[in-house]
Amino acid sequence: MTRRLRLLTTATAGATAALLLAGCGGGGGDKSNDKIAGADTGASASASPSVSASASEAAGRPKITFPSDAKNVFEDVKTGDATKDAVLADSALSTNSVDEAIFNGSTGTKALGFYNSGKALESSITYVQGYIDSSDTWIGQVRFFDRKVSLSGSNEAYVTYCSDESKAFIKNKKTNKVDRNATTSRSYVLYHTSLTKNAEGVWQTTNIVSNRGDKACQP
């Protein structure tokens, strides 16, 4: 790996992406890609107020922490709709939970199974295990932007978003070598995700498909 590579489920990407897009269309939700007032919801050693402090510190929710040299930044946190905002918050925490597992070198972290279920949890475990097996982690910053949420009934939602990985790099734990490759079109990734609200009120990510180098996310 020469650059931080984010999650792709074992499902067929094209078919699943089409399904998720169809779900977004049918949900009657926000179809815009407007950036919501940019709040930093990256989980560093101190959690941000927009996602980690409000959602992650609620009763029963595991706290997520990052090392000081890595950070996720989520734009578009507020939509003006409380339900959509809750979906976006838990979607961000799902992402953070996967990265926390990478940093901890463990697929058994509490947050990983708390914010992910079904295919998303299965592929997250496989993804994290790949880092563990190669003694890798990542450093730097990943920016998540153009986050769009669509609701389908009271317990299902779909979130699409882009990531900018141009400032994030793979680091080997044994050698401390950091792969600092030049930024290319593949530094930008488009995601389609499905979420389901569980009995505890958590919007768990249940499926996720990514398309690296997608034109929709290019600067």
Rank of each mutant, 00 (worst) to 15 (best):
L151S: 05
L151D: 08
L151R: 09
L151P: 06
S152Q: 14
S152E: 13
S152I: 13
S152V: 12
G153I: 12
G153A: 10
S154C: 07
S154G: 10
S154F: 05
N155W: 02
N155E: 14
E156C: 04
A157L: 01
A157I: 00
V159Y: 00
V159E: 05
T160K: 06
T160G: 00
T160Q: 07
T160F: 00
T160A: 00
Y161N: 01
C162T: 02
S163K: 09
D164A: 01
D164C: 01
E165V: 03
S166Y: 05
F169N: 09
F169T: 06
I170C: 01
I170K: 08
I170H: 03
K171D: 00
K171C: 00
K171L: 02
N172V: 04
N172Q: 05
N172A: 02
N172W: 02
K173F: 01
K173D: 07
K173L: 10
K174A: 04
K174N: 12
T175W: 07
T175Y: 06
N176M: 08
N176A: 08
N176Q: 14
N176P: 05
K177Q: 14
K177N: 13
K177T: 13
V178S: 04
V178A: 09
V178K: 10
V178E: 09
V178F: 04
D179A: 11
D179T: 13
D179Y: 08
R180K: 15
R180H: 12
R180N: 12
N181C: 11
N181D: 15
N181V: 15
N181L: 14
A182Q: 15
A182E: 15
A182Y: 14
A182P: 13
A182G: 14
T183I: 14
T183M: 14
T183P: 07
T183H: 10
S185I: 14
S185M: 13
R186V: 13
S187M: 12
S187L: 10
S187Q: 14
Y188V: 11
Y188A: 07
Y188D: 10
Y188C: 07
Y188G: 06
Y188T: 11
Y188P: 05
Y188K: 13
V189P: 03
V189E: 10
V189A: 07
L190G: 00
L190M: 09
L190I: 05
Y191L: 05
Y191G: 01
Y191C: 02
H192R: 14
H192F: 12
H192P: 03
T193H: 04
T193P: 01
S194L: 13
S194K: 15
S194H: 13
L195P: 00
L195F: 07
L195A: 05
T196K: 11
K197R: 11
K197T: 03
K197L: 09
N198A: 04
N198H: 07
N198R: 12
N198G: 04
A199N: 15
A199G: 12
E200V: 09
E200N: 15
G201K: 14
G201P: 05
G201E: 12
V202F: 02
V202K: 09
V202T: 11
W203E: 04
W203I: 03
Q204C: 04
Q204F: 02
Q204S: 04
Q204A: 08
